[in-house]
């Protein structure tokens, strides 16, 4: 027998810690760690609510598995964006990003959108 108040309190605590982690970090990867903590709080809450007797369709654990899958997809794309940010600006400091991305924007940004496709075709032909 287990009281479900403890898991609910832990979920609330993890969500708060995750919010602090998102707001208190400048490093982009460490912000993602805060996001992971918030997602885990949601998972714990789903498992807690799903372990109540009479939960239909095994919804708690199944939705937890779905959220874990979505978190894997999310972190995959997010880390790709972070790596691209690092390659273009040389840093993943989120407070410095607007200053650094404004510099290449005026000239190259209208160009790169139409240009990569001709580049691809040219490479394939050559």
């Amino acid at each position: 027998m287990i009281h479900l108040q403890l898991p609910a309190a832990l979920a609330a605590l993890l969500a708060g810690i995750g919010v602090y982690g998102v707001l208190a970090r400048r490093n982009a990867v460490l912000v993602l760690i805060g996001v992971e903590l918030i997602l885990n709080a949601a998972n714990l809450l789903l498992v807690t609510a799903g372990s109540r007797t009479g939960a239909p369709f095994a919804a708690g654990p199944v939705l937890t598995l779905f959220v874990i899958t979505i978190a894997a997809a999310e972190i995959c794309v997010a880390l790709a964006v972070v790596l691209v940010l690092f390659r273009t600006t040389g840093a993943i400091d989120l407070t410095a990003v607007p200053d650094l991305t404004d510099e290449p924007e005026p000239e190259p940004d209208p160009q790169p959108d139409p240009e990569p496709e001709p580049d691809l075709r040219g490479e394939v032909r050559s």
């Binding site: 609330a12 919010v19 007797t53």
Partner: peptide, 24 residues
Amino acid sequence: LGAATTVLLAALLLPLFSGVTVEL
């Protein structure tokens, strides 16, 4: 803001799960 989130969620969830036990 983190503490406010924790307090808000706890104030919502703890009464919801108060006294609920599961036989595992």
